[in-house]
């Protein structure tokens, strides 16, 4: 049933959202991207970047101030029913009926997507297996752990085998085991052909799952590409983390004006230095340290990552915001 064409599953074109116009927050400020069939696309950004607002417009929950999203050829503004049929959405906040059982929740939402009879029973059974809740299916959801609720929250989005699965920060606030389970599930679903739109503020998740990552900040996409393409933007720079016998602030004073250093700061008790690649930096650092009696305990040369990309582009650390 999958489309065998290469037309994008989702095409987002100039989405803008201003809450409570004209003076309200400009939460999304002209976002455009597209998702190819079989692609996992992540929106990575700090709290308040506008990820949920973007997704809410795509799935028809919020009407955009401007722009449109087209899913499988159907505009969410003009053909919402057809467009919604192609999407499965797991909202950021768990949204399930606590006083119904897991099976009742799945059956109910399955019917909302038009599943009936044997097909419905079959899909509910399969999804219960997928999310690992088959043996708890009859229990009221209110008694579930938060990890189990999150899995059910995702399960509801899978019932009607959508072309595009939208997961809004599905791993927030749960234990590592449940988190791993969810990530593996996303990978498996994607292998089976589902396209995924994933939002997160964990760069590790974006890196592991995605074919394409869009970094969002203040309602805009500030960079977009594969992980390799993104880190290349800062890839010309070496990234060093040093631990010294003296306090890192003192070491920073010693090293910050060494030739070739482009950026220096203290993070997690370490002195972090960025420098143009290719320079014979390390001998110069040790030389300077020896001259003032500073002992270097360890040096780590860090691979550039999405964190450094974000820092590079915004001047702020992703995890601090």
């Amino acid at each position: 049933m999958r489309q065998e064409t290469n037309d994008p599953v989702l095409e987002v074109d100039g989405l803008v959202k201003r809450y409570d116009p004209p003076k309200g927050v400009l939460a999304v400020d002209g976002v455009s991207f597209s998702i190819a069939p079989g692609e996992v696309f992540s929106l990575l950004g700090p709290n308040g970047a506008g990820k949920t607002t973007t997704i809410s417009m795509i799935c028809g929950l919020l009407s955009p101030t401007a722009g449109d999203a087209v899913i499988g050829g159907y505009s969410i503004r003009r053909q919402p029913a057809q467009a919604k049929m192609l999407m499965g959405v797991a909202p950021q906040e768990v949204a399930v009926y606590g006083d119904l059982s897991a099976r009742e929740n799945l059956s109910f939402f399955g019917r909302m997507y038009g599943l009936r009879g044997e097909k419905l029973t079959e899909r509910v059974g399969e999804v219960l297996q997928t999310i690992g809740l088959a043996d708890r299916a009859r229990e009221r959801v209110a008694k579930f752990s938060s990890g189990m609720k999150r899995r059910l929250n995702i399960g509801i989005a899978l019932l009607h085998q959508p072309h595009l699965l939208i997961l809004d920060e599905p791993t927030v606030g749960i234990d590592p085991q449940s988190r791993r389970h969810i990530l593996d599930e996303v990978i498996a679903l994607n292998r089976a052909g589902t396209s995924v739109l994933y939002t997160t503020h964990y760069m590790e998740e974006a890196q592991e799952l995605s074919h394409t990552i869009a970094i969002m900040d203040h309602g805009r996409i500030i960079a977009c590409g594969s992980h390799a393409e993104l880190v290349k933007q800062v890839g010309e720079v070496d990234h060093l983390e040093l631990v010294t016998s003296q306090p890192p602030e003192q070491a920073l004073e010693v090293w910050k004006d060494v030739e070739g250093i482009t950026k220096s700061f203290v993070q997690d008790g370490k002195t972090v230095l960025w420098a143009r690649a290719g320079d014979a930096l390390l001998p110069r650092l040790f030389e300077r340290a020896a001259s003032v009696g500073l002992r270097v305990l360890s040096v780590q040369v860090q691979e550039p990552n999405l964190e450094s990309v974000f820092l590079h582009l915004t001047g702020r650390a992703l995890r601090d915001t």
Binding site: M87, V89, E93, F109
Partner: peptide
């Protein structure tokens, strides 16, 4: 949030 969830169904 279940109302929003209903609103994203067809």
């Amino acid at each position: 949030g279940t109302l929003a969830r209903l609103f994203v169904t067809p």
